[in-house]
Design a protein around this nucleic acid. Structure first.
Lengths: 199, 199
DNA sequence: AGAATAAAATGAGCGCGCTCATTTTATTCT
DNA sequence: AGAATAAAATGAGCGCGCTCATTTTATTCT
């Protein structure tokens, strides 16, 4: 079809919008790629010309928000936060952006940014993970510590971070205040670990 | 067929043995339930009379080992370990038992004991999770602290625990010594958190 | 022994994510 | 304008996990 770049972008957006709506209303697992294609006005096969998998399609919605959240953090921080405050601001900025997608964040992040898989065959997930971890490394560096091996702090951080996301995604407390409490503890724990090399 | 209890048990074992071998050799995802059924000498449908899903079948292999590991821990502990030593002994006992299944532990635990799902439609996963957490609560209680809300310590612990399992399942260092280091840090972190209520 | 019954085994078939040979369409030649 | 070309759209169809109406088989009656 040698369609114009614009038409292609429009199709991509149609798919994303259709998927967003269905995932939110029907749920991630109960939405079929046939439904998404139909709602976007294309054939089923076409969907996979734009996104390598259902998972990747969903993740590209979330990746966009997480990136925006990181942008918010960079704008909002004043520069005189301590380490814990920096982390808190970063994560809460991401959560604010992710909020509209809370319904389907769970199953998507689980498979794309998993503790277990490392390479998830989902480009959007991979890059979101590595960009977030790089941001955290930058923050660590800016505050001038890091006495423990990188693989330890990275693994610990990623476990705690995913734990926060997972908890938040099903947190029914008022204003998700339990998530905030969990973040306080998690961040504190992490701070102590990387600042205090004594075992 | 009103088959004897013994015959049923034998079929169940055939399925488990066939699955174990295929998961180990071919990998979890590349093994089909049709292959397992064929190797076990039954029809495809019969497999699902014995196990509700492929996932549950795999998890029942792992659940058995984790339970044995907990048994080992109870036998091995002398009673004068400190809190961290107790946790270390529990987890390392489980890992020792899981070792033959390291190849496919990742994808199975990911979906059955996930941070994200809570109820996983896999009975073996649910009970393994809750039994492990109960053991940990018992240990906490035996050592007499627990100053923070239960949902916090449980969530934190589960994140760290899954992080350890995930890291271990792909740890290629000699004798998995990196996993041991990660365990040291994780356990230390957790100990500090629940013993020190000061935020 | 033979009929009635209950329980387990069976495999055709469903719906899913995804693929790929084919068709359709826009652009680039002459 | 019309042929050649390149790129994207298409949907029939694959292989998977899993279901369920039907068949097979063991046990329990009389």
């Amino acid at each position: 079809m040698r369609i114009t770049q614009k038409a292609k972008e429009k199709t991509a957006k149609n798919i994303l919008r259709a998927a967003e709506q269905l995932f939110t209303d029907v749920g991630y697992k109960d939405t079929t790629t046939r439904q998404i294609a139909q709602k976007a006005g294309i054939a089923t096969g076409t969907l996979f010309n734009y996104f390598p998998s259902k998972e990747a399609l969903a993740m590209s919605l979330l990746a966009e928000e997480i990136q925006q959240g990181r942008g918010d953090y960079l704008k909002r921080r004043s520069g005189d936060e301590d380490f814990g405050e920096d982390l808190f601001l970063l994560i809460s900025s991401e959560l604010r952006r992710l909020k509209p997608y809370r319904n389907f964040v769970g199953p998507v992040l689980e498979s794309t940014m998993s503790l277990f898989s490392k390479e998830s065959s989902c480009p959007a997930g991979e890059s979101t993970r590595s960009e977030h971890l790089q941001m955290v490394r930058d923050i660590i560096h800016a505050h001038g510590f890091s006495k423990i091996p990188d693989y330890i702090s990275t693994t610990l951080y990623w476990s705690l971070y995913l734990g926060i996301l997972a908890f938040w995604s099903t947190d029914e407390s008022r204003n998700q205040e339990e998530t905030l409490a969990l973040m306080d503890y998690s961040i504190n724990v992490f701070t102590q670990t990387i600042s205090n090399s004594a075992l």
